[in-house]
Design a protein around this nucleic acid. Structure first.
Lengths: 101, 101
DNA sequence: ATAATTTGGTTTATAACGTAAACTTATTTA
DNA sequence: TAAATAAGTTTACGTTATAAACCAAATTAT
């Protein structure tokens, strides 16, 4: 009836991060911070979790002399996001008293 | 850009409960338990939270000699659910690099 | 009759999670 | 050269979610 929701994606900030990365193939840390309105600390933690799960890749480079963290979604992450969206539908659709399952 | 998600609804089990109640105007505790696959304890806690928030009403009656807990969604709860669905869309839609906001 | 099981839950203890605050390091700017 | 800013990370804490333990009444088995 209700499909389980990937707990890694069922989090406001992590979902927002993934949402951004689905649309733009890469994004820098400060941009994600600005778009999501998250604090740097919270963002850092959640980026790390997504990265550890293999949902995003994180590249640490430099932009001039300043450090620059670039995030990208991975194929695994994209698949997980798509699956999550499908699963969510089972919660959002109105069921007109269907039988079982 | 991303609308905040009502924390009370952004929970797998509570969302499932609300989803059931949106479609069926009332549902008994054991039915919700069966449909969601939740444990009775977890369900009891989450029903209580939704009830405290005024999102559902809980009526305790009897069915024959056995206790029977009936849940119904309230207008407040329905509104909250609808708002949540709208807010969620801001995370699920693919944005083709639109400008700002 | 009474013991065991089932039904229908509630309470509570714990582990996981989200978040902000504090901190670090390097770089500009005053 | 001192202060402020940028770009993060670490850590500490309060909040949540969840299962385990519990309770009471009714039903079924012995």
């Amino acid at each position: 009836m209700f499909e389980p929701l990937d707990p890694l994606l069922h989090s406001e900030l992590r979902l927002a991060i993934m949402s951004l990365l689905v649309s733009s193939d890469e994004a820098e840390f400060p941009y994600i911070k600005e778009q999501t309105g998250a604090t740097a600390g919270n963002l850092s933690v959640q980026v790390d979790k997504l990265s550890t799960a293999g949902y995003i890749s994180v590249e640490k480079t430099f932009k001039g002399k300043r450090p620059c963290t670039i995030c990208r979604i991975t194929p695994t992450g994209l698949k997980a996001f798509e699956d999550y969206v499908v699963a969510l539908r089972s919660y959002l659709e109105v069921k007109s008293d269907e039988k079982k399952e």
